Computed example of a mutant assay.
Amino acid sequence: MRNFIKVFLTLAVAAGFGEVKAQRSAYRSHVKDLYNAINANLKDPRSDLYFETTDPAKNEHPHSYLWPLCAYIQGANEMEVLEPQKKYMLPVEKAIAQYYRATPPYPAYQDYVVKEKTTTLYYDDNQWIAIAYMDAYKRKHDKKYLDTSKMIYRFMIGGLDTVGGGGIYWREKDNTTKNTCSNGPGVLVALQLYKATKNKEYLKTALDIYNWTKKHLQAPEGVYYDNVKLPSMELAKATYTYNTGTMLQSAVLLYNITKDKKHLIEAQRVAKAGKAHFFKNGRLPNEYWFNAVMLRGYVELYKVDKNKEWITFFEQDANAIWEKERDEHNLVGNKKEKRLIDQGAMIEIYATLEQVKNIK
């Protein structure tokens, strides 16, 4: 009887391990399917640019805004983590280069293709690119990523002033709001540059922006509001997953750098609040890329405290997307037309969930 129970338990454990291993293999497969689907359905072979959606009638311009490429470049970085010998970032980098505008005093990437239209420069669009490039720099030590990120840092500092006590505006030449989406990633850019260079100016900037954002834009429960209007300082209290995510990740990185436990305690508070606030009825809100950015913060915390709770609800949502929100072309999304930003976001999510298994 004992031998029977022992064999039964051994088989049960093996079956469970096999299921987990199969799921992780599935994530890698999902990444490749999405990558192939982007190239087949959302890339313009004539220009090396990308389309906003699969439906030309729904696209405002011939090519994508920069924002979807902010998602895709991070997804491409995560693909290279899984396959270091590949160059998944390079085609996306070539596309992003076509958004560069060398306008003094702060050159940066505008929100649409320069040769087709002169448009707006957003601080957050540029910051997302710098975050991905600094992740790539950490892996590859290629100076082009560091130099571009320093350029973006100079641009974002141009949007930092003392109006409202500090903080970065949302976009150039618009002094009406300061947003979590331009301050949270601003902290991350500065922290990544500090870690790469040990220049204390970057750490001071990060702490100043972090403290201002926490003071002015955090809800009492721990998640983050969207923006503060100027000069009234009236709060816009909409909550989005990515805003909580960048500030969560910032808190963990500050703990890693300073070893001040208050940052870890705060990160765990924000993480608990974020899950309670956003994860309802087994699903996250229906904006994949916002959730991808939030996942970055939870993974950063998981590396420190090894609490699997921070990962499992993302797995549940990601699995449901593949099962319920995917078309016959392996493109994901709830609408008939499929968006580039959603594909890039889910590449990042699946690739990140695949990587989590290697966190010791």
Rank of each mutant, 00 (worst) to 15 (best):
N3Y: 12
R24Y: 15
I38C: 08
N39K: 12
K43D: 04
P45Y: 08
P45D: 12
P45H: 12
T54E: 04
H61T: 12
S64K: 04
Y65R: 02
Q74S: 14
L90S: 14
V92P: 04
A97G: 11
Y100R: 09
Y100M: 08
D111Y: 13
K115Y: 08
T118P: 03
L121V: 10
Y122C: 03
D125V: 03
I129F: 00
A132T: 05
Y133G: 00
A136N: 00
Y145K: 05
F155E: 01
G165Y: 12
R171L: 10
K173Q: 14
T180R: 04
Y194H: 04
T205E: 08
L207T: 10
Y210M: 09
G222L: 05
Y224L: 06
T239V: 11
T239H: 00
Y242K: 00
T244K: 03
S250W: 02
K259E: 09
D260I: 00
R269G: 02
G274N: 08
F279Y: 15
F279L: 02
M294Q: 11
R296A: 01
K303E: 09
K303T: 00
D305Q: 07
K308H: 12
I311A: 07
T312Q: 12
E328I: 05
N330F: 11
G333M: 04
K335D: 14
K335S: 15
E354Y: 15
